[in-house]
């Protein structure tokens, strides 16, 4: 028997936010990221019979999403004109127009490293959130990520504020335990 099994009915609840963060970090557009996640689920469903159960469900879905992101960039790149790369590029005379040479990442820039680290951090947090009980993860997400007011959350979930704070407390305590110690500097 396979070590892992697919349960598509749980996908949206368990992995949608994780995949969404992964996608947003790569395409930097919320709507496109949303579409890519949806397409990933469709593709997953379609090729479910090819799933051998060697990788965990989420790893398998991420692999599909990666292909979707690549396909997306292929598609928009084929629409653009082909870029021109010169072998001998001198910034003086050729500096008119958009040259790829000017867009190459600066290897000494700390900013890019930061963005990469933050993305890794985001996925680590999302992973921990998905391990919380459903109600706690919902309250924490609404409060922390979506920034919805206490009053509105209470109304929507039909709970009272002290319930809400207890759930936030439990969620945050669990997250502190779940997140790798490396992220904390004490």
């Amino acid at each position: 028997m396979a070590a892992h099994q697919l349960r598509p009915e749980t996908w949206v609840d368990l992995y949608a936010d994780y995949l969404f963060n992964y996608a947003v970090a790569r395409v930097s557009d919320v709507e496109i990221a949303k579409d890519l996640v949806q397409e990933t689920f469709f593709a997953g469903l379609k090729s479910a019979k090819n799933y051998k159960g060697t990788a965990a469900e989420r790893t398998w879905l991420i692999a599909i999403l990666k292909r979707k992101v690549i396909d997306y960039y292929r598609k928009i790149n084929s629409k653009k004109g082909k870029a021109e790369v010169r072998l001998s590029y001198s910034s003086g005379s050729d500096s008119e127009g958009d040259w790829l040479e000017e867009q190459v990442a600066d290897p000494y820039s700390l900013l890019e490293n930061d963005a990469f680290e933050n993305q890794e951090l985001g996925l680590a947090i999302q992973d921990c959130i998905s391990k919380l009980p459903k109600k706690q993860s919902l309250v924490f997400t609404m409060k922390t990520i979506q920034g919805i007011s206490t009053e509105d959350i209470c109304k929507e979930l039909n709970i009272n504020p002290s319930n809400l704070w207890v759930m936030v407390h439990r969620a945050r305590t669990a997250l502190m335990g779940c997140l790798n110690e490396n992220w904390f500097k004490i």
């Binding site: 969404f20 963060n21 004490i186």
Partner: peptide, 28 residues
């Protein structure tokens, strides 16, 4: 706890709204 708040801000977490998720489930 304060550091957790900083980490959450730094990570620029995004999430799909419940409405989006419901729509996704329906389509699926």
């Amino acid at each position: 706890n304060a550091q957790l708040t900083v980490l959450c801000q730094k990570a620029h977490l995004k999430s799909l709204s419940e409405k989006d998720k419901r729509r996704m489930k329906e389509k699926l």
